[in-house]
Design a protein around this nucleic acid. Structure first.
Lengths: 137, 137
DNA sequence: AGTTAATTGCAACTCCGTTGCATTTTAACT
DNA sequence: AGTTAAAATGCAACGGAGTTGCAATTAACT
């Protein structure tokens, strides 16, 4: 059984053409993908709306997580750790290369803790680093 | 001379109704503002486009900086430190309260340094913390 | 194979931000 | 103050991102 199929099964998602194909695109990609990238990589075979809904389903199930981009867009990447339904554990730094534009999860770089002023509590932290990646330097 | 006027003078910006009014809104606000907030606070007196252009001018001049929001929007806040033309020094953590929704600059909370893998260089770091602010707890 | 529920595609829509252009306002200079 | 050139504004129109309702299609199960 293919990896993609396995993931769908594990999350009790029905095996549809678009879900399988979108998952395969993620599995073959090293960097995070924008909605447009996915449209292109799937060969324009699926409706925009279908891809949006597929992505939303994957997010709900903890299969992918989102990454905010500098221009107020969203990119999507597979969750490495075991994210559970409705709760993500993507406590890692996201990196955007200024040269190649690729967005990637630095899975091994944990977000450092930060001391907030008295009375503030934390539920979520996003850290996005821009710079030049190891490929482009 | 009003504070707003002073800021405009200092950055060699002509003193127009919209610029003065938008600046005054910022000066009177504790939290960061979305474009919509500014439209409302200025009494719908200016065209959307004018406000967008005014904000862009302020960003270019280092008067305000942007803050990404969770839903891929943008908020704007005055720069406290002296940002120079074309270069911002907003090296502080941004905080979004899950209860009141207000976005604010934690000017006193510096972004902690982070160790990236070998070969990666850094040009910019964004850190956005979600949680509950001191007012809402 | 047939039934039911889930998924998809299509059309339409909202929202955010941008661009071109004609009109108005500002600022600088008599 | 009046003139003028440059800058700023308002309007209309556009483009992209994401959403919603609904009818048609497909998957999963007996």
């Amino acid at each position: 059984m293919s990896e993609a199929l396995h993931i769908l099964k594990r999350h009790q998602l029905s095996n549809t053409d678009s879900r399988r194909t979108v998952l395969e695109v993620f599995l073959q990609s090293e960097s995070a993908l924008a909605h447009q990238d996915i449209e292109r990589e799937t060969g324009e075979r699926f409706d925009r709306v279908t891809i949006y809904r597929t992505l939303q389903t994957f997010i709900d199930k903890g299969i992918v997580h989102t990454i905010p981009t500098a221009d107020n867009g969203t990119k999507y990447a597979l969750c490495r750790e075991n994210c559970s339904e409705g709760h993500h554990h993507d406590n890692h730094v996201h990196f955007i290369c200024d040269v190649c534009g690729k967005t990637s999860c630095l899975d091994d770089v944990a977000i450092p803790s930060v001391r907030l002023p008295e009375g503030f509590s934390v539920t979520k932290i996003d850290m996005v680093v821009n710079g030049i990646c190891v490929e482009c330097r």
